[in-house]
Design a protein around this nucleic acid. Sequence first.
RNA 1: GCCGCGUUGGUCAAUCGGUUAAGACGCAUCCCUUUCACGGAUGAAUGAGGGGUUCGAUUCCCCUACGCGGUACCA
Length: 506
Amino acid sequence: MENKVRVRFAPSPTGGLHLGGVRTVLYNYLFAKKLGGDFILRIEDTDQSRFVPGAEGYIFECLKWCGIEPDESAIHGGDYGPYRQSERKRSYLGYAEKLVENGYAYYAFDTPEELEAMRQDLRTADNPAPQYDQTVRGRMRNSISLPADETKTMLLKNTPHVIRIKLPDDEIISFQDMIRGEVHFNTGTIDDKVLLKADGMPTYHLAVVVDDFLMKITHAFRGEEWLPSSPVHVLLWRYLFGEKNMPQWAHLPLIMGPSGKLSKRDGAKYGFPVFAMNWTDPATNELTEGFKEKGFLPEAFLNMLAMLGWNDGTEQEVFSITDLIQKFSIERVHKAGAKFDYEKAKWFNHEWIKGFNAEDLRLKVKNVLEDRGLEVDDTILLDKVINLVKDRCTLLTDFYDQAYFFFRSPATLDIAAVRPKWTMEKKEFFISLCQEFEALAEWESAFIESAFKTIATEKNIKPGELQLPFRIMLVGGKFGPPVFDIAGLIGKQETIHRIMNSLEQF
RNA sequence: GCCGCGUUGGUCAAUCGGUUAAGACGCAUCCCUUUCACGGAUGAAUGAGGGGUUCGAUUCCCCUACGCGGUACCA
């Protein structure tokens, strides 16, 4: 029990949950479930200035849609709460102070203006981004540069201050990354990161380390963008809890957009979703479309994300979540970033739609149709329709275009497709056909087809010449399942009605 | 600038020193189908560049180039 695997996804609730975030969730989840471990959701809301109402609830909604339930979280409960860092605020100060006492950190009183001035002064072409490090530490106002008593009085007077880590001047920090192998950094190239902010909140650096320890996290997955600050975290573990207790790190490769790092702008620009679900920015009211609303199945969405950076070494590409749990291995996660390919994403969805049966899709298709104003209460009919058209649907939303004519006459007919070859003889054929239809005892696709062919032979017209017009009459365009199946499902009277109605327009 | 991580077709990618360098998406052509799809077949398309190591490098090492990330009291 002591060695139980515990992983965590720790998003900052500042907006929509994008592709990369969901993939991080997925890999966390797969890893934990494969090893019988727990998946924890921790909210990293230490930046009060970036609080966005609704963002936290939205994250939970996205996970729910994906079918990934945390074992522990702010709403699922658990023994290691609270699961929001803002609610754990008081626990961080002690650790920060302990670091100061041991000489691993120090108080810094520099105001934002002073910091800005320092950066201005030191900025050169060769050093465009001066850091608060060993080279400048001495000229700033902190408990290292200032006399002890002055520091003491400033502290007593509640002078606004932060606590910064004091990085060793020149030390190689290395650790094993589960994906990249051994990585190392020289502390001389890293700045003295702020650990505790002036408002008493910890920064990410302190909070991850403290919470990962307190929550007994065994393996920590995060995006590659964290790699450069990982030596700070390693040092913090060493100073606070012992490096041997540190979780094993795995820095996941980034998901790229068409031009560089994937952003929600790419979505708007190239017409594909980047968020799991629709997200409306409460400040600007700007809506960013989600995969869910675009018509993706969660199974396909997850499948696609899993393959963006991982494969099982075989040629298999379609995986269910249970399959993924069984086969996932961190060793096979790619090191390089992957460019997101919307065409491939759609292919996954198409595969999943084709693979599902009518019952699996029923509810979702019904919703799509009803969203567009089609009332569907005949489940038997709906199932038949789904089976007939699902191969033609890449997105769930395609079901409307592919199936609406089963429930409603087409609004417009592609007359241009029939008119060039339209003749009086053909018109007569359809009139006779309607009479024949009226007389049909059983309205079933095979009988409809044979009646159609019989009349065609009588009129001496090739059946093939007549099928397209018939299709246009029933469907409105050159698409859809076999015509006789359509006629069979929409019913005798409706078929005759559509034929007669079309005859007036051709 | 500095630091780090990467680099196999347009994209996702297999290969763990010896292969005609898989497969998938997309694209093209054909077959099936008197619609559109599905399905099937075929094709075009890949190891960034340069040095090593080795009998032999896509694979191991170095350099260069390029890409990405970081360089905040944001995560």
